[in-house]
Design a protein around this nucleic acid. Structure first.
Lengths: 180, 180
DNA sequence: ACCTGAACACCGTTCAAGT
DNA sequence: ACCTGAACACCGTTCAAGT
């Protein structure tokens, strides 16, 4: 169907993102090199520069993918399920989560990251819209599940079953029903 | 006083940690190289291996320093001030904070990290000891301030004054007074 | 013990050249 | 437009050698 040519891919950017995504989760951010990604995609170490201005730009694209996916998994859920889904995402894709939120990337430099994050943030605020200060409740809720995810990933809460631990911790917290 | 010799430092490990700490905060974790640290300390690129088995071990030592410092700043404070002190630490030393908690290091491989973190965790639990499930309240509180710190660092709460924002968010959250 | 320079295998990035 | 190999300046790490 496709003519064989000197171009190895119909869609090299997508192939690079796929390859990089696999390496990311398997070996971590630090071990994710542009040269190896190119090798895995079957192109020269230099070809990626046609599509990503540098290594950081490839990482930013992976992060944006992840934030969008996370936003989709939150949208429309009630608050409690949202929190559990947030932590589940982090536990299932720890390296992706770190890349999205671990300070690896200068968010200000990649507007798509801020955009995707604001969209997910909005989904959260909607879940708290009936409270008197929904923006504070949403900020608190986001902080809570975000910190919980990070600390679980780092192993700071021991080896207990994450599922029930998350439920218990979220159950121990209330967001103010009246103005702070 | 000291005899001039081929040994440049009475305490090379301390000199390396000082040099690395400066580079860490100024240029970030990714830019922190063993070779440059050695250069700054005035020794050959190879000397650090006498004291740190590899780059990761140097990073782990920096992280342990930081966790211990943070623990000292929390200990003995009432819960609300603890939260504010936690976030302040993160905002003042963002790169150090990321190194301590950002998943850069395999915590399981460096027992001193776990030890320092458990000690800080204990300070937190003491502040919640009057509640029916202090361990859940402490986990929730830690998660909350931890996530708040991370998200502020990443700029996800916009440009508002962090000091009052932190106070407002912490004020909007209650930890259950009765068993969950 | 502690430090050294040389060497190796990797990077990210740039460049001039090919189709 | 898209891809290539050669080249450069950096790394982390290992090694044999010096005091």
């Amino acid at each position: 169907m496709c003519p064989v040519s000197t171009y190895h891919h119909g869609d090299l950017p997508a192939a690079l993102l796929r390859a990089a995504g696999r390496t990311l989760e398997k070996r971590g951010i630090g071990a994710l090199s542009l040269r190896e990604t190119a090798r895995r995609a079957g192109v020269s170490h230099n070809a990626p520069y046609r599509h990503f201005s540098d290594r950081e730009a490839l990482l930013a694209a992976l992060a944006a993918e992840g934030i969008t996916m996370l936003g989709e998994q939150l949208r429309g859920k009630p608050a409690r399920e949202m929190g559990e889904a947030y932590v589940r995402f982090a536990l299932e894709q720890p390296q992706r989560f770190r890349l999205m939120f671990g300070g690896v990337l200068p968010v200000a430099k990649y507007p798509e990251l801020g955009r995707a994050a604001r969209s997910a943030h909005k989904a959260l605020e909607e879940a708290f819209s009936e409270l008197p200060r929904p923006e504070l409740a949403a900020a608190g809720a986001w902080s809570l599940v975000h910190g919980l995810a990070h600390l679980l990933l780092e192993g700071h809460f021991g080896a207990q079953d994450p599922e029930t631990f998350v439920r218990d911790v979220l159950g121990a917290v209330r967001f103010a029903q009246r103005a702070a």
